[in-house]
């Protein structure tokens, strides 16, 4: 087990304005497992990811990463944890415009003051296929290349978990497929734990399992998903009783 959510709850605001984002979500993420989290807008899927990645603090329950209780960590310790033990891929704006692709990819190592492990870094860069683009700035890269750069950056520290927030949301289907294949490959070949939030059934189809969230609660889990089955499951959220 790499990461764990135990009765995780998150409430924004207080009193009458309180909004419940998560209400008691428990889940376990195993090593080398590629998990997709799905659910309608506002279901709490991003909040769950943020809490597990040390970006947000739950108001109740516990988030653990490799045995560390994130709730017990100071801001500095959380920063170090994100730098060393978590890899991030966001939907957009993943790379710093002022740095080259190489500098962006090795940024977490530079932040930690570490020298890149050259064999591993080369392997990652080869996997994302950016070997001939390392001197380019993000503005000179395509959207797909930028996201692959972000994946490489997420992998370069060999984190305990890679979290990806709608990593294909801004891409055409071919570029998106390349990202998803990459994520699946690192889970299978490198035993990299991956947690991906998405609303795209095709993207979810690449995962080993799908968690379904609705109104801040875990409502279903689907092992060995296919796009058709995920789509089918998602349609049930669209019924007037649950959808929004």
């Amino acid at each position: 087990m790499v990461a764990e959510a135990v009765a995780l709850g998150k409430v924004y605001g207080d009193g009458e304005n309180a909004v419940v984002a998560l209400s008691g979500v428990s889940a376990v993420f195993r090593r080398g497992e590629f998990t997709a989290v799905m659910g309608p807008s506002g279901s709490g899927k991003s909040t769950l990811m943020h809490c597990l990645a040390g970006l947000d603090a739950p108001t109740s329950g516990t988030a653990r990463l490799g045995g560390t209780d994130l709730g017990a960590l100071s801001d500095d310790a959380l920063t170090a944890l994100r730098r060393e033990r978590v890899g991030f891929v966001f939907q957009s704006f993943n790379l710093l415009p002022t740095l080259t692709a190489w500098e962006n990819i090795t940024l977490p190592l530079a932040l930690a003051g570490r020298r890149p492990d050259s064999a591993w870094t080369e392997q990652v860069i080869a996997a994302v296929g950016l070997g001939d683009r390392l001197d380019h700035r993000p503005a000179q890269l395509s959207g797909g290349q930028q996201q692959r750069g972000a994946c490489a950056r997420a992998l370069v520290t060999r984190p305990e978990i890679v979290v990806a927030d709608e990593p294909t949301g801004n891409l055409d289907s071919r570029s998106g497929a390349r990202i998803l294949e990459l994520l699946r490959r690192c889970a299978r070949e490198w035993e990299q734990t991956v947690l991906m939030v998405t609303h795209d059934p095709i993207a979810a189809g690449y995962a080993d399992r799908v968690l379904f969230l609705a109104d801040g609660a875990l409502v279903d889990e689907m092992p060995e998903p296919t796009p058709e089955r995920v789509l089918d499951r998602m349609r049930r959220f669209d019924s007037p009783a649950v959808g929004r």
Partner: peptide, 16 residues
């Protein structure tokens, strides 16, 4: 702001 947020997310400390 977004850029600084990204940097913070991937591990730049407040003091940094």
């Amino acid at each position: 702001t977004r850029e600084i947020g990204l940097l913070r997310a991937i591990g730049l400390g407040r003091r940094d």
